[in-house]
Simulated scan of single mutants.
Amino acid sequence: MLHGVDVSAYQASFETDGLDFVFIKATEGRSYINPRLAAQAKRARDAECVVGFYHFLWPGNITAQAEYFLSKAPEKAGELLAVDWEQNGEGTHASNAEKDRFIREVKRLRPHHKVLLYCNRYFWLNHDTTSYAGDEKPALARELGPIMSSMPACRASRRRHAVSAAPTRPSRSRWATSRSQAPHNAPRTILGVHP
């Protein structure tokens, strides 16, 4: 199994021992940027982890949000880009159409990067009606193994991991929760794929 964490501005530091990947919150909406973005990316790269950046999607202004995300997310070959699709602090969330439009716009603007959906299991099973997850199916945290094992820079690809292919829509019992419900100041552990 592959292991990684999701970090944001709440984490002044994080441990990289035993990690295969680190996903870093880059932006949110059209005005927020993670003030620790550069330092967190450097730490993950120095540890030879696969690095991904995500944008916390809000409803509305989808093209502007995609442009804002890409203006702030570092552009390095092989690094992943993702949309974090979940309920926001106001209790709303972007629609399926907005989520799909955001992924397609990011892919259009950065065609040589993998662009993925990043959401929790509940959202994926109960809110997603299109099953569009960008370059890979199913959603990011459920299919990380095949994505990363195909990347030459991935430490994990040099290890032996039992990673299996997954159906487009898994049964509810097949998957572990994709992101732990950790306190906001602790990195959230992301589990890879179960064999």
Score class of each variant (00 low, 15 high):
residue 51 V to Y: 09
residue 104 R to C: 07
residue 61 N to Y: 11
residue 13 S to V: 03
residue 64 A to D: 15
residue 85 W to D: 02
residue 45 R to D: 11
residue 83 V to S: 11
residue 83 V to G: 06
residue 72 K to N: 13
residue 22 V to P: 00
residue 85 W to L: 07
residue 94 A to C: 13
residue 13 S to P: 01
residue 31 S to K: 12
residue 9 A to N: 04
residue 81 L to R: 13
residue 16 T to K: 02
residue 118 Y to Q: 08
residue 76 K to L: 06
residue 22 V to R: 01
residue 72 K to E: 11
residue 76 K to I: 11
residue 102 F to I: 04
residue 94 A to W: 15
residue 33 I to R: 15
residue 25 K to E: 03
residue 105 E to M: 05
residue 70 L to I: 12
residue 98 E to C: 03
residue 119 C to N: 03
residue 11 Q to I: 03
residue 9 A to S: 09
residue 85 W to I: 04
residue 25 K to V: 01
residue 91 G to I: 06
residue 32 Y to E: 02
residue 59 P to Y: 08
residue 40 Q to D: 07
residue 59 P to K: 13
residue 41 A to M: 11
residue 118 Y to G: 05
residue 50 V to K: 07
residue 99 K to E: 04
residue 12 A to R: 14
residue 91 G to W: 11
residue 23 F to S: 02
residue 108 R to L: 10
residue 96 N to H: 10
residue 112 H to M: 07
residue 5 V to I: 15
residue 8 S to T: 04
residue 93 H to Q: 09
residue 48 E to R: 10
residue 119 C to E: 05
residue 9 A to D: 01
residue 93 H to Y: 13
residue 43 R to S: 11
residue 24 I to A: 01
residue 15 E to F: 11
residue 4 G to E: 08
residue 64 A to P: 04
residue 103 I to F: 08
residue 55 H to E: 03
residue 95 S to I: 04
residue 35 P to A: 00
residue 5 V to M: 09
residue 23 F to K: 04
residue 61 N to K: 15
residue 89 G to I: 02
residue 69 F to N: 07
residue 76 K to W: 02
residue 80 L to N: 15
residue 8 S to M: 01
residue 66 A to P: 05
